[in-house]
Simulated scan of single mutants.
Amino acid sequence: MKMIFRKAHLYLYVFSVAFSYAILYPLFYFFSRKTSRYKYMNALRRVWGFVSSGLVGIFYNFKVEQPIDWSKTYIICPNHTSNLDITAMSIFVKTNNCCFMGKQELADFFVTALFFRTVDVPVDRASKIASFRAFKTVMERLAQGITTIIFPEATIPDTYPPQLKDFKNGPFRMAIELKLPIIPVTSLNTWQILWDDGLKHGSRPGICDIFVHKPIETAHLTIDDADALRDEVHAIISQKLAEHDHRRTNR
């Protein structure tokens, strides 16, 4: 019975996302026609994410370790257990001068295609040439002051409950090369609301708890420190997940 309700909720959530996107599509399309309008596209995406989730009882609770100065440019690195993580970051990032870097398949999905053909950057990790071009594009955008959200696991873990995967080096090398701070973000329980795309376990109403760690400065680092920076961010997120799991199992 529980799974029936979760599956029914998933259908409601998918309908909410698709229906609200269809209503907003003329505006999204208009804003996507010129790069100067991308900031409005991101602002509208924030509203869309809040509304499409809220209509089915999914909300987001952000705890910030240190206030974020959004006048600066960052590479934001969250762990990834749910499609809701994308919505969470769309809502959290308070600058409209931003973009996502994500898998190439997102350029073909109904509600993400327009974004990943314009404001966001798709990456085909199966092709070294395509990956190089994508990272070059991201480097150019970061150099222009565009904050970028990159999920360093590159994919959602296929285990349930999800376990934190190893991180890719790309975002950490870019941060060091451009001397930009990295913001680790721990998505604590989005997988309990909706794991992956929800097809296996459905979804339910609830509050997604997101912990935003203080920025890590990279101005003093060299490219030889990229692996150490990667491991530091991984350890920060891993420890926060372990603390959350300990509290949850001891309630």
Rank of each mutant, 00 (worst) to 15 (best):
F151V: 00
T137S: 13
H80Q: 02
L164Q: 11
Q192I: 05
Y29R: 08
Q66S: 14
G202Q: 00
Q239R: 08
L12V: 04
N250K: 12
C98Y: 13
R133A: 13
K63Y: 13
L142R: 08
T155R: 10
K128R: 13
F151S: 05
P161T: 05
L221I: 02
E153Q: 13
L24R: 09
V119K: 10
Y11S: 14
K128Y: 08
E105Q: 09
I149N: 02
D120G: 03
K128N: 13
E177R: 09
K200F: 08
A235Y: 04
Q192Y: 02
N79R: 04
R46A: 11
F19W: 15
I156P: 07
P122S: 11
Q163F: 04
E177C: 00
D69S: 07
H80G: 07
T35N: 14
K103V: 11
L10R: 02
K2N: 15
T118H: 10
G102Q: 00
I149L: 10
K94F: 05
G57W: 03
V123P: 12
I176L: 03
H246G: 03
T218I: 00
H246Q: 13
A126T: 15
L199Y: 10
C208L: 13
G198D: 05
F31K: 00
K240D: 15
P26A: 01
V123D: 14
F59K: 08
K7R: 11
N250Q: 14
A88M: 12
Y29L: 13
V64N: 05
S131M: 09
L10S: 05
Y40P: 08
I183Q: 07
K34M: 05
I146A: 02
F167G: 01
D225P: 04
T147E: 02
R141L: 10
C77K: 04
W195H: 12
D225K: 03
A235E: 10
